[in-house]
Amino acid sequence: MLKCRVIPCLDVKDGRVVKGVNFVDLKDAGDPVESAIAYDAAGADELCFLDITASHENRGTILDVVRRTAEACFMPLTVGGGVRTTDDIRNLLLAGADKVSIMTAAVNNRDFVREAAEKFGSQCIVVAIDAKQVAPGRWEIFTHGGRKPTGINAIDYAKEVVALGAGEILLTSMDRDGTKSGFDITLTRAIADSVNVPLIASGGVGTLDHLVEGIRDGHATAVLAASIFHFGEYTIRAAKEHMQSAGLPVRMD
């Protein structure tokens, strides 16, 4: 039986983890590779790196991080942030990423999704959607960390990018991100039920019950969280045990 996935996400800037992992004794809590090894050992189902490097000159640093991670961790790795061209995707895949997440480039040019899926296969193209509620039952896409509205309806957009070849949706509620008040379940379910590809729920996880809700009520197939894992509030193992006791299938290898 296919298991629900628990995915820790690390923000990486100029090759360094922004909020360091501190649930284990790492020699260098800022080294993404050390954090990746720790999560691999802890039983994470996948790992996500979000590259928030601002300057163009340092954009190559993520490739080195991905390369070194792939040498040490034999688990699936998704990398997003600043992916704008098919060359960006190819470089990340060659470095050892399994999936590449695209956001702004897809909003600006939908055809990029089609081009990427045709070139590399849908299975490695994740489209990240940052959505904010603008009216009851209506969510719109925002870019630039939730600052820039686009006027695009999030549900219509999700259907569109899937039709163009996206193999997975990474959905973040910008209303909930950082609040620890749980996923926006109405939004998650509305999008999960509108598309036939897997959906990763993100934004707002503060308790282990939130993870359960994302899958049971939001119909996501995977849940992504950052701070609850990085700061040792909960282990991956505790998260999975909690999900299992709620009747969700999880991997305990």
Partner: peptide, 13 residues
């Protein structure tokens, strides 16, 4: 069934 997503993505036995 409609709730089975494709790609088959993730960990299975």
């Amino acid at each position: 069934t409609p709730n089975l997503k494709v790609p088959h993505m993730g960990w299975n036995t």
